[in-house]
Design a protein around this nucleic acid. Structure first.
Length: 789
DNA sequence: GACCTGCTGCGGGCTG
């Protein structure tokens, strides 16, 4: 049967009313799957590919035919919910299917309307769904009594995240509370391994989840990469880098290879986006920016992103604020009639951010310098090109960002990547000479082309989120036997990596802090401290947040600052792309009063440690041992890649991952964050002196002793918990503090969780075994230097 | 050498 005729009468009329000529292939497939099977669905298509309608056309049809049925839509952002709410309201206008939304900005009255008359479609955040369990726990079976469909938008956002496990737990509790088994329809733009998404939705029956993906549209991708070298006054020109190997020859036995001296701009590879660079047009800069790499990047961005609507992503808020400051200054010097550059990130007030979003939609030339705030699918119109400062942390982020451009049919996706590297000097380490940021940028592009994305950490324990859900379930049900808690959260729910023994320890830890207690009949209930935690409205989120100071100018909020970075009165800082002078600080109201400033400004925001996959590091190694030059490199980057490869091969890293110098050995195990940390902890455990950089470990020892140590690592039977016990920082997530006892120095649960979630013993041992194999038998502590050319 | 997300219920006072 044709898909259109499977839709209800009201939906068919709505499609005519909206003037849609035809259904897209994913919509046809989805309508047929929903109508004629009982499968769950994952609909994978790029942003603006018609995913929402693919899910909701058949759902609304079912709701129109059977008004007792209900659907909920869970979205990660309030803004996304508001977008979708308007689309669905228009669709349902004459059909008689109610559309509700529930999030923090929705009025009490609207929420009350849904509570009095539940039904139709409800659009909600995970946190608001949590608030339903906490505040209307007993009414949940009535509120969701007709639940037939659960739509999850931007599924990829939830897959590898604390918030995703929270959502999975809420949905399992919803099934338990209502006794219903609604169908899942998940929407996603960037999906790595579909099986992981299937497992997330239906851990007991992943095969029942059908994948519908949009194969029809392939898109041209244009990527260009340019590297800028830091080191203000005496920095080397790229063409001089190769001569540098003379300088370090004493330590590293690296000698220059004869190479035709290629000036920066002489070669333009075809099919790549080439950043234009006109040194002569550059205006004189004030002293505080002279020679900075970001300055060089700002000049390229000033010309390349002057026209159209664009996004430039950076890895930190501070970088983007500095970049905006430089761009505004360039605008002043060049007397621009119009400055298209604006800033958008999580420490800027909601008002200013929504102004930026409207400017992006307005069609006036606008380039937003942004963090991941503009990565998700909220509607900001057609984006011409994307910029990226420094390599992103993951392939997934790169793909998501690139996908924001070229939304119109036939437009290419365009990405200009700028990489900042340290110019080499006599103090450079071998790691510096491998130019790891450039190589990592390339690795990310190559993995994107190979269609690889980071897998989700499916085996993680997520004890912090388990604590959160335990408290919420106790709030919902009053008192409940411990076995029932375990059954609901860890057997039916998603915390399946948690054993009964570990859960018992979690409960004991909470009991020791009066967060929970046991009634005479053995049931668990909230203690005094627990009641206080759960009755605060800030309880609903599963993730932690920073306490911040508000920044106000003339009664309007500009944004937020870290309490530890509130500059004293009279000082100037950057926020929302402007300079602000501190007039007054109100400690009680946690507010900084400011006026526009002019002096040199400073900037700082909060941060967390990064995490890089071993697959990316492995790809970096492949690139270093390869001899091809991808077309997306600009001539300077080609030269730096050539230098990095020379350093790699002259150091003999292709044959043996060790670099031996007098009294020191540097080991490149080619592992990501987890593996490198594990090796570091092995060294701490055996009192082996070691220093770490982003790629290598440096030991002060001889080859003989290191070989013995590596053998010890390979054969070690030390437990991962013992190694995790040596971690200086043990708490990472919101409720981790409840899992330890400082007085008794009992950190077992945190060590147990960190051992599973943050270390990789097998990977570390394998790297040690591989290294042993690569060390030539009977080698001396100083290998023979390679012959000179 | 990081980034982002989210948030109640109730009572008092005011307006039409």
């Amino acid at each position: 049967m044709p898909a259109f005729s499977l839709l209800s009468e009201g939906v068919q009329k709505a499609i005519f009313r909206m003037g849609w000529d035809e259904l897209r292939p994913i919509q046809v497939e989805s309508i047929q799957a929903v109508s004629s099977t009982t499968d769950d669905l994952i609909i994978s298509a790029r942003t603006a590919g018609g995913k929402t309608e693919a899910a909701f056309l058949p759902i609304i049809s079912e709701l129109e035919r059977d008004p007792k049925k209900q659907a909920i839509y869970v979205g990660p952002l309030k803004a996304l919910i508001n977008d979708q709410f308007e689309r669905l309201e228009r669709l349902c206008e004459d059909i008689g299917v109610a559309v509700h939304r529930w999030h923090g900005d929705v009025s009490q009255a609207a929420k009350q309307r849904f509570r009095k008359n539940p039904g139709g479609i409800l659009l909600i955040t995970p946190e608001s769904l949590e608030s339903n369990f906490c505040n209307y726990g007993r009414a949940v079976p009535d509120l969701y009594g007709g639940l037939a469909f659960i739509v999850i938008d931007e599924l990829h956002v939830f897959l590898n995240d604390v918030r995703g496990l929270h959502l999975a737990s809420l949905l399992a509790r919803l099934r338990t509370a209502t006794g219903r088994n609604p169908r899942y329809i998940a929407l996603s733009a960037t999906l790595g391994d579909p099986d992981e998404a299937r497992l997330y939705l239906r851990p007991d029956n992943p095969a029942s989840v059908r994948l519908i993906s949009d194969q029809s549209r392939t898109r041209e991708v244009r990527v260009g990469l340019r590297t800028s070298l830091s080191g203000s006054d005496n920095r080397l020109k790229p063409s001089e880098i190769l001569n540098l190997f003379d300088c370090v020859v004493g330590e590293y036995w690296i000698r220059p290879k004869p190479l035709a001296d290629a000036p920066f701009d002489s070669v333009r590879p075809p099919d790549a986006v080439q950043p234009d660079h006109d040194e002569e047009d550059e205006p004189e800069e004030a002293d505080d920016t002279k020679g900075s790499t970001l300055d060089e990047i700002a000049h390229d961005i000033a010309s390349a992103f002057q026209e159209g609507t664009n996004l430039v992503f950076g890895n930190s808020r501070a970088t983007l604020e500095e970049l905006a400051d430089k761009l505004h200054k360039i605008g002043e010097v060049q007397h621009w009639a119009y400055d298209p550059f604006v800033v958008h990130h999580g420490s800027i007030s909601w008002d200013i951010r929504s102004d930026v979003e409207s400017r992006l939609k307005s069609g006036r030339p606008t380039t937003a310098l942004c963090t991941s705030t503009l990565e998700l699918g909220i509607d900001i119109g057609d984006i011409r090109a994307i910029g990226q400062i420094d390599p992103p942390w993951s392939v997934a982020a790169f793909v998501q960002r690139l996908g924001r451009s070229g939304r119109k049919e036939g437009d290419p996706s365009i990405m200009r990547q700028y990489v900042r590297e340290d110019a080499p000097s006599r103090e450079s380490s071998l790691t510096d000479l491998l130019f790891p940021r450039l190589i990592r940028s390339m690795a990310i592009v190559e993995l994107m082309l190979a269609k690889w994305l980071e897998p989700r950490g499916a085996q993680r324990l997520h004890l912090s989120t388990l604590v959160h859900q335990t408290l919420s379930l106790l709030r919902q049900s009053g008192s409940i036997p411990a076995a029932k808690l375990y059954q609901t959260l860890c057997v039916v729910g998603p915390f399946r990596a948690v054993t009964p023994q570990i859960y018992e320890r979690v409960l004991r830890s909470l009991g020791g802090k009066d967060i929970i207690e046991q009634s005479p009949n053995g049931d668990m209930l909230l203690g005094l401290a627990g009641e206080a935690i759960v009755s605060n409205y800030q309880f609903y989120a599963s993730f932690a947040s920073n306490e911040m100071f508000a920044v106000n100018h003339a009664g309007e909020k500009i944004g937020e600052l870290l309490p530890t970075f509130v500059p004293p009165k009279g000082r100037v800082f950057l926020l929302a792309g402007r300079r602000w002078e501190v007039l007054d600080i109100d400690e009680n109201a946690r507010t900084v009063i400011v006026r526009p400033g002019t002096k040199k400004a400073e900037v700082k925001f909060p941060g967390d440690p990064g995490d890089i996959s071993t697959r990316i590091i492995a790809e970096m190694r492949r690139i270093l041992s390869d001899s091809k030059f991808p077309a997306y490199l600009d001539p300077g980057s080609r030269l730096i890649l050539e230098a990095a490869r020379m350093a790699y091969s002259r150091a003999g890293l292709g044959r043996c991952p060790l670099l031996v110098t007098v009294g020191k050995i540097r080991w490149y195990p080619w592992l990501g964050t987890k593996g490198l940390l594990t090796l570091h902890l092995f060294a701490l455990h055996t009192k082996m002196s070691v220093k770490l950089d982003e790629l290598s470990l440096e030991f002060e020892t001889t080859v003989e002793d290191l070989s013995k140590w590596l053998e010890g690592v390979v054969q070690s039977d030390v437990s991962a918990e013992t190694l995790a016990g040596l971690m200086e920082i043990k708490e990472f997530e919101r409720f981790d503090g409840m899992l330890k006892d400082d007085a008794k120095k009992d950190y077992y649960l945190l060590d147990y969780a960190n051992a599973r979630d943050r270390l990789d013993i097998a990977e570390a041992k394998q790297a040690a075994a591989d290294c042993l194999e690569a060390i030539p038998a009977g080698s001396a502590s100083r290998p023979t230097p390679p012959p000179a050319n």
